[in-house]
Design a protein around this nucleic acid. Sequence first.
DNA 1: AATGAATGAGTCTTCATTCAT
DNA 2: AATGAATGAAGACTCATTCAT
Lengths: 212, 212, 212, 212
Amino acid sequence: MATTQRSGTRGKSARTTRHRESPEVRKKLLIEATMRSIAKYGYSGTTIETICSEAQVSRGLINHHFGSKEELITQSYKALRDEWMFQTHGSLRGSYLEPEDKLHAMIRVNFDPAMFKQEYLGIWAGFWSAIGKSPALRTLNRELFDKDRDTYQQIFEEIARKRGKTIDARRAALSIIALIDGFWLEWCLDPKGFTAEEAEAACMGFVAQTFA
Amino acid sequence: MATTQRSGTRGKSARTTRHRESPEVRKKLLIEATMRSIAKYGYSGTTIETICSEAQVSRGLINHHFGSKEELITQSYKALRDEWMFQTHGSLRGSYLEPEDKLHAMIRVNFDPAMFKQEYLGIWAGFWSAIGKSPALRTLNRELFDKDRDTYQQIFEEIARKRGKTIDARRAALSIIALIDGFWLEWCLDPKGFTAEEAEAACMGFVAQTFA
Amino acid sequence: MATTQRSGTRGKSARTTRHRESPEVRKKLLIEATMRSIAKYGYSGTTIETICSEAQVSRGLINHHFGSKEELITQSYKALRDEWMFQTHGSLRGSYLEPEDKLHAMIRVNFDPAMFKQEYLGIWAGFWSAIGKSPALRTLNRELFDKDRDTYQQIFEEIARKRGKTIDARRAALSIIALIDGFWLEWCLDPKGFTAEEAEAACMGFVAQTFA
Amino acid sequence: MATTQRSGTRGKSARTTRHRESPEVRKKLLIEATMRSIAKYGYSGTTIETICSEAQVSRGLINHHFGSKEELITQSYKALRDEWMFQTHGSLRGSYLEPEDKLHAMIRVNFDPAMFKQEYLGIWAGFWSAIGKSPALRTLNRELFDKDRDTYQQIFEEIARKRGKTIDARRAALSIIALIDGFWLEWCLDPKGFTAEEAEAACMGFVAQTFA
DNA sequence: AATGAATGAGTCTTCATTCAT
DNA sequence: AATGAATGAAGACTCATTCAT
């Protein structure tokens, strides 16, 4: 029977009918719901209940698909990280940008209104607060950090080579990451201290100084 | 023997005797125990139980002295912040330091081995994760941030004036704070990515560049 | 065996199997358990633990179905009141009784052995003790009182009209309710002071006097 | 040194000085505070803390003087009951009142504005709610009930004898007590259902009917 | 695959009681 | 006699997890 089964009783919507999805689709939906929940309620305010409510599914489903809440959290962070890597590093690949442009692009994406907003920062901050206690998250984070540092370092070296300058590329890479993350952190703690434009300008200023 | 028996020994046996302290002393001890607990177990891993166990007192005592866990947490953050302000800003007062020396001193204290270690960073990270949900903590944090930024800004202006340079002192202040906090954050997330010396050198390098 | 296993046995062993009920049935069972608990342990002796133990379910279930103990208590009082209204007023409807018979019936039900017994009185007394602090309970109680008074008043008026007498029907209604409740109260405080028969006879005597 | 020791430090008032009272005075003050607390916060809202706060003494004093909260409650009920007996029965003794006047006096005192008010009723209601669980209170209450019933019964008999009527004096006594207590109870549950005057008039009406 | 009823360990809070001062 | 710091049992509530349907 191909006909979708309708619940005859009064229901708010189609939600009364048991919707069946493939595991992959469900997992994806639950991961997205997890991020929305962390953004809304913070990391420690996020419960099985808030996630499932956000995903419009029943409480049992998380354990059904992920085995535990912890696993869902880990997978969610992984998804966030991968998405992030794709956004930043992926954009550089395949194009013949000048290294300066690459650097600016990578910095700029951090303060793009789509990224640098309370909701999105909240997700990262939520995960940050959990990394201390979860080796799995810590590993994922380390991979991201190392990748970022390498990328920045290479670009700094490229620019220096091109301009015939000698700089400490590792230090510059560490610094620019710290600068960006520092702005993110402070924005999370209090969004009123400065604007995204100020933060971006400060980062660009740092780059300019470095090669001055 | 008139000497009051001190529970100096570490062990359960010492707890049989009821130890009495003045409220001020006890509050201080509880606040310290709170910080140790946050450092050890993280913010959300810190419970009335972990704190009292850390302080070697019974579970009811927190409520007796602070009314609620939340109040204890707030007071603990306040104490941490005040201690921090005392350490950084207090050291500058009363001495006739050159502005450069002041700046270096303020930066250096952040990476002093006494400060820049897992335990201490864990306390800050713990509170950071809670600021999002507690207006009281947010207010305290904002006061700290504003104070820091003002102080840095003034020093940058002083140096610029002295050297006859024109700089954007506000941006420099925001940047140096972001840089420091960024290093702290990353160190919390993974202490193996870089050393305290690298971080301090990077900050000093930023200052040098600014006036180059 | 297709028959669902009922935990009809009294004992802990029966609890090993997880018994599943529809929310409606479970709520009803919990409400009944609440009344038994109040009857047994009094209002302030009634805890989540005593109720769940009485209902043979785990401690978390009350929150699952009612959200809070308070809500369960309120719903229980509502159920008790509705049952009571159904018993007293419901019995009068649809029959062509003489008003005297109605009055006698309404009075008699109060001292029926099924009602006028320690256990049942204990439930009411338990709720009475809580009404002072719960606006929700107070409202429910006021509705009951007003309904009772109206009903009695109408019957008194009917009888008076029929017999060509002039009486203060409101006062008579207030009095008969006070009389009944007074007996209930005293019986709660000490069941040995008088018998149910004496109490019923006294109420009937009051009615007789009123129309003498 | 006859000089009262003043605490030199800033204190709000003389409360800083340890006031020393004779045990009897202290006990009396604590009993009064207990009643005030029950009137204010209800029986189950009354804690060692509320009582001591009401009495302006420290928390440890109750156990010091009474050994336990329960004992203080019992003694308080005893004091209330004795005071009540003194008020009602004591007033009749030694005067040459007509029995009708005695009866009216005894009824009237129940609805005197000094008695029939929320605060005072609250105390009784508070104790009522506790009688179910305390044999000690139950005994005290039974003594009061029996005394009341005897007194009313004797007066009813006296009046009947005087008027040459034959009545069931026991039933009349039980009824008038139930009537009064019923009004008290309902007034506790909801003071808006009727007025004190109505209640008193109803009781007087009952007496009049009895001898009609 | 999906639901949600049921569980129970864990957490904060209350409060009568104890006891050093 | 009086204080209030300290205790710990008991209570309500939260929430990840289990499992019958």
